[in-house]
Design a protein around this nucleic acid. Structure first.
Lengths: 195, 195
DNA sequence: ATCTAGGGTGAAACTCGGTGTCAGAGTAGC
DNA sequence: GCTACTCTGACACCGAGTTTCACCCTAGAT
């Protein structure tokens, strides 16, 4: 049928191109504004045709938000890995560490992308959509972890945890990256500790 | 300039037409599926031109979700009206009562619309967007209510409360409206009581 | 009764995002 | 050199949403 090693090298090449295209797109978006740039513009700037660009990212927004999918999956895996019997809130807080790490790995780049997202309604909404798409997996893991499972409560807690993340990120970007994202996230989670 | 009473009668007529158009649109969406129906279709079914339909609702989705805006505003007002010193969670839970009432007032209609929304990605996302748009107001009210205000915590709690609402509604519709929405909402809020 | 100003309507042209199709170029295995 | 496969770009197409313009209708003024 198909040589699996060949398939893998192709995949590597594809993701490399994807990263290159995304970088060019983000650069252009930052320079001229997401909504001002058309698909033709960004494709031309990236040196490919509109068709090709849309083949790599299903939509204009995916060029910016594509990197997030990976983090969502990582969070689900991380939640799986939390020790049995650990409280939901601490497990959820810890499973968001991959996000913290990603932001720490490239603060200025993360800040730029965060701003880009917050300044464009289209990107903000896609971001919401994306986070919502992570919920079922997190809810499932949380339900399975529980000794007395309640899917409704699990769903609420998972959703609330993601709210903490996005709100912490918002405040972090409002402080121009000056504050510590992990501290902000902890502060956000403290909303569930006291009344 | 303009007779204010005339302006008001015009407004009443407009909202009446709006309601009529929305009803026709929802009916058609339910029958043929939201994504299958084009603006031309729905305009023809409603007996107006595409232009006019889009003048009443800025988008196809607004024909379905337009009624929600009112509820969002009501919730903010209701939160304002909660007694001083009341806990955030109970205040938030109570300020969602207008939603409960609206669903109770027309269960079968609400159920139909809820299903419609959940079955169409476009509508789901617009719904997310709409709920997110309510957050700033709720956060502000919650912050002002607090004796030791923390805007970040307030934002998280407001967001979590809206999560409870949408999750409760989801489960309610999954039960075909069989379960009690208020009870489900209470159960959702219980996610913040225990660890 | 006529004129007139303003808002509501519909027709049309336009932009743009996204989908699908197709033909051609490059490439690896035979 | 032949074949199968993938990637690419060009093109046509659709539907959402914006804008413009002309028309009608109604209400108030003369």
């Amino acid at each position: 049928m198909e040589d699996p090693t060949r398939a893998k090298t192709r995949d590597i090449a594809r993701t490399a191109i994807r990263a290159e295209l995304a970088q060019a797109a983000i650069e252009l978006f930052r320079r001229e504004g997401f909504d001002q740039v058309t698909l033709n513009d960004v494709a031309a700037a990236a040196g490919v045709s509109r068709s090709t660009f849309l083949r790599y990212f299903g939509s204009k927004e995916e060029a910016v938000l594509g990197a997030m999918d990976d983090l969502g999956a990582q969070a689900a895996v991380a939640l799986c890995a939390r020790p049995y019997g650990e409280g939901d809130w601490t497990a959820l807080r810890r499973c968001l560490d991959p996000f913290i790490d990603a932001y720490r790995a490239d603060p200025s780049g993360s800040l730029a992308i965060t701003r880009l997202i917050q300044e464009s309604p289209a990107l903000r909404n896609r971001q919401l959509e994306k986070q919502a798409s992570w919920l079922p997996a997190l809810t499932r893991v949380l339900t399975d972890r529980s000794s007395r499972p309640d899917p409704l409560v699990a769903a609420v807690r998972a959703a609330a945890a993601l709210d903490c993340l996005s709100i912490a990120v918002t405040h972090w970007s409002a402080s121009n990256g000056g504050e510590d994202l992990a501290a902000l996230l902890d502060q956000a989670f403290s909303a569930f500790a006291t009344t």
